[in-house]
Design a protein around this nucleic acid. Structure first.
Lengths: 353, 353
DNA sequence: ATGAAAGCGCTAACAA
DNA sequence: TTGTTAGCGCTTTCAT
C-alpha cells in the first residue's frame, strides 16, 4: 500500500513522532533534523493518510451538502458558493442530491455516512418536522430555507414573504392589476412556494387589488416545462393577466416562452418577475427581473453555522436513548439566520405600459 | 463521542466480533444471537464509524470529481450524472471546482486529499501533460475530454472533430455558406475549443466552402457574456455570417441575444448551433440546435474507469522513487473511451431560408 | 458459531 | 528536542 510514517522514520533513522512533528510542522524541531526528515519524505513520496488522521482526531474536514437537483442552476450556483465558503475554512464538500424526495432527504439527514462527514447542510423540499425529530445522529445539521419547524437546528433563509411582496409591489408600481402567481404546487408540501404565494396575496390585498384563485396557477414541479405548462393552462382557462410573478426563474423562463408563442409581448402585454437570479435570466431574448437572494451570504452563513456547531457544546447529545425525552439542556434552539435579497430589475418589467 | 462496537458488545454481553458479524450481516449467526445484538444496536443507536472502516479496509468509497465551474450548466448536469453513476456502485462523490485554472488542476490531480478519495475524475482545461507526468500519487485518475497526451490514464471523450463537422454539415445542408465559429480562445490552451475549430474548418473545406479567419471570433472564456461579445465583435468588424457554430450552448445563447438586439432573426437571417445540450437551450425564445454529448454515458464510463483502476493491477506503482524512470510495466496505457453524441435540431436552425 | 488479539496510520500523552 | 506507547473503531486472521 502507501508509504507510512513508519517507513519514513525508518529511512531517516528517527522515531515516528519526529516525522509527525515535521509533517505537522511542529515548532521545536532543529532545522537539521527537519531537513533530514524532509529528505526522506521526498524520497519516498510520502503523503499523510488522512483517513487515519481523521479516525484519530474524530473529525474529517468534510461537510456534506444535499440539494434537490444540481440541474437546477440555482442549486448549482449555490453549491459552488458553498464549496468556496467551505474551502475558506479548510473544509471540503461532499455533494448529494435528493431530487426533493422525502425518502432521500430523510436518508441524508440521518447521516447515513456514519461519521465521514463532520456536518450537513440540507436544502429540504418535502422533509417534515417529525423526520428530523427522530434524528439520532449527532453531527451538526443546518437547514437551508425558511424556518418551518421548532427544532434545534439552525436554518438559513431569506424572508420569502417580504421578497415576494417586494416583487409584487414592483409590478403594482408598473400599473399592473391582474397579477398571476405561477408555481403553486398543490400535491406536495413546499414551504417557500407557499410563502411566496402568501406574499403575493398579502401585497395585492394591501394595495386594494383582488387576489383571486383563478390567477394562481399550480405546477407539479418548478422547472421550465412546469412554468410553460402553468402559463398555458392559465391562458387557456381564459385568464389574461398583465403580469406574472413566478415561483422561480425557471418557471418564469418557461412562462415567457409560452407568452411569446401566444404572441403576448413581455413586458408590454405581460410583465414577468422571477425568483433566484440565475445567470440564465441575464441573457434571454428578454432579460428577467428577479428576486436575487444573496447566495454568497447564504453559503457563508450555512458553512459557519455547521462549523460552529462542530465546536459548540452538546456534541454528545442524543447518544443515550433516554436522553431523547429530556429537554435538550444546553442545546440552543435553532437560530434563524436571515440573508439579504434584492430585486434586480431587467427588461421583463421595463417601464410602464 | 459516538457509540462503538465495544459499547454494543458490552450491552449485549457478546464479543465485539459477533456484533461486527451482525452489522455486516455475516452468514453464520444464529437468529437468536442476531436478534439480541440488534436489540443492543437499536437501543444505543449505534452507527458504524466509516472512517475506521476505511482505515482498516484501505478504501473509502469516495470519488472526487473536479470540474471547472459548477455555474456552467453543462458541468452541473454532468456532475449530477456522475453522482448518480457513482451511487449505483455505492460510491459517493466529493466535488471540487478548479475554475479551469492550471494551478488548481495540478493541486487536485496531485490528490492532495491524501487517501480520502479512492479515485479522481478530472475535467481539465489548462492542465499540461507534464503536470501529470510528475504525479506521484497512486490513486486512479481518469480525465474527461479528448486524449491530449500519452499518459497512463484513461480519458473519456466524445469525438469533438466529428461532432463539430456534423454540426457544420447540418448548417451547410441548410444552404448556409458564411458560417462563423465563435469561441476560439487564443490566450490559453483548451483542447476541445481547438478541436471544434478544426472540425469547423475541415467540414467547410470538404464542402468546398471558404473558412476564412475573419469568420472566427475569439473569446476570453465560454460563458454567455463571452458569446455576446464575440458576436458583437464579429458584426462590428463588418462580417455578416448567415450561420454561427458556437463552442458551446452558453456562447450560442449570448450570440443569439446580440443577434436579436441587432435585428437579425434566428434562424432566418442567421442559423445557430451550439454544443452541450444544456436544458437552457430547450426553452429560450428560440430553442437551440445543439450537439448533444451523451452525458449519462460519459459519467458511467468515467465512474467505471476509476473503479476499474481501483481493482486493477499495479496499485502500488509510483511508490518507490526509482520506479519512476522505469517503463510502467503492467500499467496499461491510458485507454480512450468514446461516448456517443447526436445532433439535436431545434428552432435555431429550423428549415431553409 | 463465537471469541481473542493484532493492526490499519495516525496523534497525543507522557518520558527521557 | 526527540522517543515510546496507547488507542481512535473497525476488520480479519486464528482459535475455540
Amino acid at each position: 500500500m502507501g508509504v507510512s510514517l513508519k517507513d519514513v522514520a525508518g529511512l531517516a533513522g528517527v522515531s515516528i513522532k519526529t516525522v509527525s512533528n515535521v509533517v505537522n510542522n511542529y515548532q521545536h524541531v532543529t532545522p537539521a533534523m527537519r531537513a533530514r526528515v524532509q529528505a526522506a519524505i521526498d524520497e519516498l513520496g510520502y503523503v499523510p493518510n488522512l483517513t487515519a488522521r481523521h479516525l484519530r482526531k474524530g473529525r474529517t474536514g468534510i461537510l456534506a451538502l444535499a440539494v434537490p437537483e444540481l440541474g437546477n442552476p440555482y442549486f448549482a450556483e449555490l453549491a459552488g458558493a458553498v464549496i468556496d465558503a467551505a474551502a475558506e475554512h479548510d473544509y471540503t464538500v461532499l455533494l448529494d442530491h435528493t431530487r426533493g424526495e422525502r425518502e432521500q432527504e430523510i436518508l441524508v439527514s440521518q447521516g447515513f455516512r456514519g461519521r465521514v462527514i463532520d456536518g450537513l447542510i440540507l436544502s429540504p423540499i418535502e422533509l417534515e418536522a417529525e423526520d428530523l425529530r427522530s434524528r439520532s445522529h449527532d453531527s451538526p445539521l443546518v437547514l437551508l430555507g425558511e424556518r418551518e419547524y421548532d427544532l434545534p437546528y439552525d436554518h438559513i433563509a431569506i424572508d420569502n414573504v417580504a421578497a415576494s411582496r417586494r416583487a409584487v409591489r414592483h409590478l403594482i408600481g408598473l400599473g399592473r392589476t391582474r397579477i398571476a402567481y405561477l408555481g403553486a404546487r398543490t400535491d406536495r408540501i413546499n414551504f417557500p412556494a407557499q410563502l411566496r404565494l402568501r406574499g403575493w396575496r398579502e401585497e395585492l390585498t394591501a394595495a386594494g387589488l383582488p387576489a383571486p384563485d383563478t390567477l394562481v396557477a399550480p405546477t407539479s414541479g418548478w422547472d421550465r416545462g412546469d412554468g410553460a405548462q402553468a402559463m398555458a393552462w392559465l391562458l387557456d382557462s381564459g385568464q389574461r393577466p398583465d403580469a406574472v410573478f413566478a415561483y422561480n426563474d425557471l418557471v418564469a423562463v418557461g412562462a415567457m416562452r409560452v407568452l411569446a408563442e401566444r404572441g403576448l409581448r413581455v413586458p408590454w402585454d405581460v410583465a414577468v418577475v422571477g425568483f433566484d437570479d440565475i445567470a440564465e435570466g441575464r441573457f434571454g431574448a428578454v432579460t428577467l427581473t428577479t428576486v436575487s437572494p444573496d447566495k454568497q451570504s447564504i453559503a457563508r452563513l450555512a458553512v459557519e453555522s455547521v462549523i460552529g456547531g462542530l465546536q459548540g457544546p452538546e456534541k454528545g447529545a442524543g447518544t443515550s436513548p433516554d436522553r431523547r425525552s429530556e429537554q435538550p439542556a444546553g442545546t440552543p434552539a435553532g437560530r434563524e439566520l436571515i440573508a439579504e435579497f434584492r430585486l434586480v430589475e431587467r427588461e421583463s418589467t421595463l417601464g410602464r405600459r
